[in-house]
Nucleic acid binder design. Structure first.
Lengths: 190, 190
DNA sequence: CCAATTGGTATCGACTCGATACCAAATGCG
DNA sequence: CGCATTTGGTATCGAGTCGATACCAATTGG
C-alpha cells in the first residue's frame, strides 16, 4: 500500500532529522525544539516573532512554548521586546549569540551534506515536499507560514516598493522574503 | 539558499507528523515513539524484531527503548518471546490488540487524506524521499532497513522460492516484503 | 579458558509537554 | 459607556521521554 510506504518514509526521515538536531543541540545544551524555535524566529517577519505565532508554527501549547522561550532567554540567545501598540504582546529577537549558535548547528552536518549532494539542487524534492505540505495545511485549516512575497495580500507598488494589503504597511525587499503568520497562498487560477 | 529552504520544509513536515501522531496516540494513552515502535515491529522480519534492531531503527539508546517496550508490554500491545538459539535475545511480537491500535491510529487521518490525494499516487514524492534517505544513510554509515527482497543478499531460487545469502535460510514471498536490519542495497552498476 | 563483545534491563536526573489556573490588556456588545 | 468575552502570555504540576551509567547474562574469539 503506497500510503503506508510513504508514511513510513516520512516518519523515518523525521526521526533522523530529530536525532541529528538533538546531537547538534547537545553541544550548546539545547534540545531540538530550541533550535527549531530559533530558526523560525530568525526567518520570520515582525508580525510573526511572538510567542503566539511560534506556538502555532510548532504546533504545541502556549504554556510549553513559554517554557522553551524562558530557557532561550536565560541562555542569552533571545531577547524579549514589548510591543508598542498592544501591551500584551512581546516580540522575540534572536541575539548575536543566538545567530551564532544557529549558524553552527543548523542544518546538521549530515543533512547539509545530503541535501547539497542532491541532483538538480533538490528541486524535485522541494516540489514534492511543498505539494505535500500545502495539501496537509489545506486539510488541517492550518496557517501556511509562507514567505511574505508569495502571499495574496502582497502588493507591488513599484520597483523595490511593496505593501501588505492586510496591515497596509509598506514592505522592503527583505521583508518580502520573511515568513509571515498571516500568509495565505494566492489561489491557483484554472 | 536552497539547502536551508529544504531543511525548513523537512523540519516542518516532521513536526506536523509528530503532532498528528501525538494526537492519534493520545486516544490510547500512547506517545509518538510507541506508535512508531509498533509500526516498525509489525513490518519487520524475524531477524529484526528485537530490542537491538528497534534501537537502531529509532536512533535512540537501548536503555530508552527498553523502557518504551516495558510500557507497550504492560498495555498488552506487545509480547516478548525468548530466542531459541541465542538466550540473550528476545523477539517482540505485536499482539492482536497492538495491531488493532495501529490500524486505527496510523497513518494519522490528516496524512492519510493528504497522501492519498497526491498526484500519481505520490510516486514523485516517494522517489524524492527515497533518494534523500539513501543519501543520508550513506553519509551516516547507517543501516537502511529496506525490504528483504531489495537486498543484495536476496537470492531467487525459483518461482516463489527465495533464500537469504547471509543466513542461508529459505524465505517466503511474504518474508521478502518485510524490513530487515541486515538489509543492504544492491550496488548501482554504472 | 578467559577476556571482550553483545543483548538486554534498571535507575537516575534533566527536560518536554499538556493541563489547568491565572493575570493583564484588548475587544465587543448591550 | 460598562461589563463580559477574547486574546497574549506566564506559572505550576505531573506524566513521560531520553541519555548516561551501571550492571548482568550469554556469546564469541582468541
Amino acid at each position: 500500500m503506497a500510503v503506508d510506504r510513504l508514511y513510513a518514509l516520512l516518519e523515518r526521515l523525521g526521526n533522523l532529522l530529530r536525532t541529528e538536531e538533538r546531537a547538534a543541540g547537545l553541544r550548546h545544551g539545547l534540545q531540538p525544539v530550541h533550535l527549531q524555535a530559533l530558526r523560525y524566529l530568525q526567518s520570520c517577519n515582525r508580525y510573526s516573532n511572538t510567542p503566539a505565532a511560534l506556538t502555532e508554527y510548532l504546533g504545541l501549547t502556549k504554556g510549553t512554548v513559554s517554557q522553551t522561550l524562558l530557557l532561550l532567554e536565560e541562555k542569552g540567545l533571545l531577547r524579549k521586546q514589548p510591543d508598542t501598540e498592544d501591551r500584551r504582546v512581546v516580540h522575540l529577537l534572536v541575539t548575536e549569540d543566538g545567530r551564532a549558535v544557529l549558524k553552527e548547528a543548523l542544518p546538521p552536518a549530515l543533512f547539509k551534506r545530503a541535501l547539497t549532494g542532491l541532483p538538480g539542487e533538490g528541486e524535485a524534492l522541494e516540489a514534492a515536499l511543498t505539494g505535500l505540505l500545502r495539501s496537509l495545511q489545506a486539510a488541517n485549516a492550518q496557517r501556511s507560514f509562507g514567505a511574505c512575497g508569495t502571499c495574496k495580500h502582497f502588493q507591488r507598488e513599484g520597483p523595490g516598493r511593496f505593501r501588505c494589503g492586510l496591515t497596509k504597511e509598506p514592505l522592503s525587499r527583505e521583508d518580502s522574503q520573511l515568513l509571515c503568520r498571516e500568509h495565505e497562498a494566492v489561489p491557483q487560477g484554472p
